[in-house]
């Protein structure tokens, strides 16, 4: 037996919460794939811990989406679990950056650094949201992402300014990931509405600060910021890379093949 995919009533508030929750869940899941595979035990624990933080943040955001979503036909409501396990690729709203395959340790670190340098100031600004529940989630998440940013910054510097081999790998990771960073600062009509109400901030306001943080760390890491301005987009509206389908197949296999399984 296979469980059917759910339908979601994506009001602007629900869409907003799902986008941020999906970022955290998918990136958290990618980090969980490193469990047992990191170069040393210490880094294995660090990546698992960061993944755990992100999945915890995803849970809070999914719970909020469930609270805000109008009831479905027959009074049924979606839950944290149905959002995570019973939506298909086209319904996921995460940034493409979050779903990219891990690659080597350098790329894992670089992806986490580029994201953390954005999401930490983002949540800090969101602590002033007029929505008390979003402000509470932001307050909690920001403390955690501050550590993620410090940890990844240290590694970017250590590896970039390390051996010729580690330097080249970090530069290659940066070139590979760069065109996926633009999507973080995007906004659309649904979010513009929530911005007007003071519920959310305009992500594009984070861009200059992010760029400064990234430039500062890359300078110390002797890495060069890519010049290309072209940016790949699509995740926010459900147009994903082929990689997400494989990730979901693994993540959703159990709840889809054993509906309602508990232990």
């Amino acid at each position: 037996m296979v469980t059917n995919t759910i339908s979601v009533s994506e009001t602007p508030q629900v869409l907003y919460a799902l986008r941020r929750a999906d970022d955290a869940l998918i990136l958290g899941h990618r980090l969980s794939e490193c469990c047992g595979h990191a170069p040393t035990l210490e880094e294995d624990m660090a990546l698992a811990n960061i993944g755990l933080d992100l999945i915890g943040q995803a849970r809070a955001l999914y719970a909020l989406a469930a609270l805000r979503e109008p009831s479905l036909e027959g009074g049924r409501a979606n839950t944290e679990d149905t959002y995570a396990y019973l939506r298909d690729v086209g319904q996921y709203r995460n940034l493409l950056l979050c779903e990219l395959p891990n690659g080597d340790f350098g790329r894992i670190i670089m992806r986490q650094f580029l994201y953390s340098a954005f999401i930490d100031p983002y949540w800090r600004a969101m602590m002033k949201s007029s929505d008390v529940q979003l402000a509470a989630i932001a307050e909690k998440a920001e403390k955690e992402t501050a550590y993620h940013l410090r940890y990844t910054s240290e590694w970017v510097i250590r590896l970039g300014d390390g051996t010729p081999k580690s330097h080249d790998r970090m530069q290659a990771a940066l070139e590979f990931l760069w065109s996926y960073t633009g999507e973080m600062f995007d906004t659309d009509e649904a979010e513009a509405m929530l911005q007007a109400e003071g519920m959310i901030i305009d992500a594009s306001a984070i861009h200059d600060g992010w760029r400064t943080t990234v430039q500062t760390i890359l300078d110390r890491a002797t890495l060069t910021l890519p010049q290309s301005a072209w940016m790949q987009k699509g995740g926010r509206s459900g147009r994903h890379s082929e990689h997400l389908g494989f990730l979901l197949a693994e993540m959703q296999q159990l709840p889809r093949s054993e509906p309602g399984a508990v232990w």
Binding site: E42, E43, M45, A46, N49, D53, Y147, R150, Y151
Partner: peptide
């Protein structure tokens, strides 16, 4: 410090 993240979320090694 050996590691920023330790045996649980709240500890470093």
């Amino acid at each position: 410090r050996l590691a920023e993240f330790g045996s649980t979320s709240c500890k470093a090694l």
